[in-house]
Simulated assay, not measured.
Amino acid sequence: MAARIDHVVTSGTFTLDGGTWDVDNNVWIVGDDSEAIVIDAAHDAAAIAKTVGDRTLRAIVCTHAHNDHVNAAPALAELTGAPILLHPDDMPLWRLTHAERAPDRELSDGQVIEVGGVALTVLHTPGHAPGAVCLYAPDLGTVFTGDTLFSGGPGATGRSFSDFPTIIESIRNRLLTLPPETVVRTGHGESTTIGTEAPHLDEWIARGH
């Protein structure tokens, strides 16, 4: 059976720098009928595990360590036995949510994660968070961008551990170089394409946020 992408929306809160906001998160599940990976275990481990079903969960991949993207990761790991993968540059953020439980493995730029007969390449895309990554799956014609790139512009950079010039460089050099038809599956909200977003880079820079 060919690999597919399943999608769950979970709801909860995002907390950082003393503020808390209600958020809906996209949880992406990539795999075939026998195995899968989860991208961003947000808020509701039981709902995510239900979508995974009886498949073997090979990994819980964190695009970054803001609490709304990792708060269900330890519980999902407990349910499934899957390892949690995070870029080491995001450990300071991870510890804000899970001081007692470290990730199991490190993500690195250029690393390839294989599941269900497809390969996902890790792209280190700092800016929204120091260890933010995207996962590019050319065989599926898609890139999973977490909070680095949304429909309409870059992820927020107004809080601790973030930097606007850095996220612009990540988007320019790592994402907008992908084929224009590549579908951008984001951490929140609607999907878009590289070709839709690329013409607006200068507008984002002029806006400066």
Rank of each mutant, 00 (worst) to 15 (best):
M1I: 10
A3N: 02
R4E: 06
D6Y: 05
D6I: 00
S11I: 10
T13G: 01
L16P: 06
D17E: 12
T20Y: 00
W21H: 08
W21P: 01
W21V: 10
D24Y: 04
V30P: 02
D32G: 14
D33Q: 13
D33M: 06
A36N: 09
I39S: 11
D40M: 05
A41P: 00
A42F: 06
D44G: 05
D44N: 13
A45G: 12
A46I: 10
A46S: 12
I48G: 05
I48M: 04
K50H: 14
K50Y: 11
T51M: 12
G53N: 08
G53H: 04
R55V: 11
V61M: 14
V61G: 13
H66Y: 13
N67A: 01
D68G: 05
D68W: 12
V70D: 12
V70Q: 10
V70G: 09
N71K: 10
A72K: 01
A72M: 02
A73C: 14
P74A: 01
A75W: 04
A75I: 08
L76Q: 05
A77I: 08
L79G: 08
L79M: 15
T80K: 04
T80F: 00
A82V: 14
A82W: 12
P83I: 01
L86R: 02
D90A: 07
P92K: 03
P92R: 00
W94S: 06
W94L: 11
W94G: 07
L96I: 11
L96S: 08
T97H: 05
H98L: 01
A99E: 07
E100W: 03
R101I: 10
R101K: 13
P103Y: 00
D104G: 09
L107E: 01
L107R: 11
S108L: 01
G110Q: 03
G110I: 03
Q111N: 03
V112T: 14
G116A: 07
G116E: 10
G117M: 03
G117P: 13
V118F: 00
A119Q: 15
A119C: 14
T121W: 12
T121D: 09
T121I: 03
H124S: 15
G127M: 06
G127K: 04
H128G: 07
C134P: 10
D139C: 00
L140E: 00
L140C: 04
G141A: 06
T142G: 02
V143W: 04
F144T: 06
D147T: 04
T148P: 12
L149G: 06
G155I: 01
G155Y: 11
G158N: 15
G158T: 11
G158F: 06
G158H: 07
R159N: 06
S160E: 11
S160M: 03
F161P: 14
D163G: 12
F164W: 04
P165G: 06
P165H: 02
T166G: 04
I171M: 02
I171P: 02
I171C: 02
R174M: 11
L175F: 09
L178S: 11
P179K: 07
P180W: 02
E181W: 09
E181L: 04
E181D: 15
V183E: 10
V184K: 00
T186N: 07
G187S: 13
H188F: 03
E190F: 07
T196Q: 11
E197H: 10
E197R: 13
A198L: 09
A198R: 15
P199D: 01
H200T: 05
E203M: 14
E203K: 13
G208S: 03
H209R: 09
H209V: 09
